[in-house]
Design a protein around this nucleic acid. Structure first.
Lengths: 213, 213
DNA sequence: CCGGTCCTAGTACAGCGTATTATCGGTCGG
DNA sequence: CCGACCGATAATACGCTGTACTAGGACCGG
């Protein structure tokens, strides 16, 4: 069915064309607002003012949308401009973590290949920074992947946290206090920023010591 | 509809009762064989020889099945008996990684709260080991979470790898060699065991240096 | 005016998770 | 021995999903 009237039909140029970029941007917005479970091709299309199956002209499957949305998150990670290798690496992974936490749904998509241009660009930056710092041979992939697994793991860990409301979790721990004494004494919701900063320091210290003793 | 004939109907005691444990074990088997996308309540029930909705007497939702399956994987991680703190921690995370990689679908479930008894037991063990080694104050959660995020991140990274067949990935990298020069020179499928071992060494070195200088 | 090409909409289908309801088989009180 | 109960199972049904297929609208070069 076509729009009934000339007057109601949006004027030619007012109707923004449907593009892949608009689809991805709207998917990110929808995921931010409602989470992964509520991302539906129909709902996404509705927000874009189109029919649901129209999306399939721009995109092959729903998985494509998710891959593109995830890479869009990586696109938010700034590439630090200058500084010593350690500061540059720390700045990169800190911004990386922040981007993932700004879109908590993204941590649920971190399985699946990270082959988008934005992801590759950040990985390349990390490799290049470390290579320039003297990491070579087996140390280069080890250092690069240590940092990236650390950041994705940290973000996933933290994003997972609020799911069960803290009180219920604490209660469960206290109820089994004899089985988990140390855990019960410390709780499972630390100061995540501090944990990340200190853990990153451990890792960078270890990397520096092994290669520049 | 009831089984038609006495002869075809399984004898009383031959028919194993449907229990939560059987459901979870079968879910793990199904996930191992066919992956997460093919895990369906109907298919799971079929393998168990029951109707699909019968499962809902033992389980509240499908998510419960996934949570339980994931915790079953954690249950495969051995708790090392003796040794210095560093060896115990290394043994724990190495076994942890192995269990996750034995069931690659598990890395796709690592968002979602890890509150099962097996997960908690491993976390408690890690906390206790590190606390006994002298990690205190802010160093205790930092050290414990660094290790666990490192292991989950590493397993996820590696499990993600084979998705796009290596050749296509390498081709894509080479096609954009000028954009990703360092990456193209090294490829994206390193020796994962070596990467993990070295990265773990970085981390443990850094932890040891900060707390036992 | 006409073809073709890019894009959009509609219809339809198989499969999903699960709420609801009916029914079974075994155990136990009388 | 029997009826009543109850833990466990099955069947049916509903709304929603991803997406294949098809038909059409809008623009464009000739």
């Amino acid at each position: 069915m076509v729009n009934e009237s000339v007057w109601l039909r949006p004027a030619r140029r007012e109707r923004r064309p449907l593009t892949l970029d608009r689809i991805v941007a709207e998917a990110v917005a929808l995921l931010d607002e409602e989470g992964e479970a509520r991302l539906t091709m129909r709902r996404l299309a509705e927000r874009l003012g189109t029919g649901s199956t129209t999306l399939y002209w721009h995109v092959k499957t729903k998985d494509d949308v998710l891959d593109l949305a995830l890479d869009a998150v990586f696109g938010e990670v700034p590439l630090p401009a200058a500084g010593a290798w350690r500061e540059r690496a720390a700045a990169l992974v800190t911004g990386w973590r922040a981007a993932l936490l700004r879109h908590p749904w993204s941590t649920g998509l971190l399985d699946r290949p990270l082959m988008g241009p934005n992801a590759l660009e950040r990985t390349e930056f990390l490799y290049a920074t470390l290579a320039g710092a003297g990491f070579g041979g087996a140390d280069l992939p080890a250092a690069a992947f240590s940092l990236s697994t650390f950041v994705t793991g940290s973000a996933t860990m933290q994003a997972r946290d609020p799911a069960g409301d803290g009180a219920a979790v604490a209660g469960r721990l206290l109820a089994h206090r004899e089985a988990y004494p140390v855990l019960a004494a410390h709780g499972l919701d630390p100061d995540w920023d501090a944990v990340f900063a200190r853990g990153l320091a451990y890792l960078l210290d270890g990397m520096a010591a092994r290669t520049q003793p």
